[in-house]
């Protein structure tokens, strides 16, 4: 037996990395396709969510202001 193990190993690497990347690239393509299809045809019901965000917009702003104040206070301390 006079097989060159290094060349065998390199073949393994080529095939192995090739398969891993092929698999993941196909997966990425499928994930993107799925996301587009689902958002187009089966959007999640978000009506009440958006309504509540509009109502609490002002409330959010006060919270954000409070957090910002706390952070500045913390940084100064």
């Amino acid at each position: 037996m006079d097989t060159n193990l290094v060349i065998e190993g390199a073949k393994f690497m080529l095939l192995g990395m090739g398969t891993v990347f092929l698999f993941l690239i196909l997966l990425i393509v499928l994930m993107n396709a799925m996301s587009v299809i689902i958002h187009k045809f089966f959007p999640e019901p978000q009506t009440d969510l958006s309504a509540s965000t509009v109502n609490s917009q002002k409330n959010h702003k006060t919270i954000v202001a409070a957090i910002t104040a706390a952070i500045t206070h913390h940084r100064q301390a």
Partner: peptide, 18 residues
């Protein structure tokens, strides 16, 4: 989804060491 490629690249540790 594209961060999946990072998970693929890390498998080079397997085949490089081989």
């Amino acid at each position: 989804p594209k961060t999946a490629l990072l998970g693929g690249a890390a498998q080079f540790g397997i085949f490089g060491t081989l």
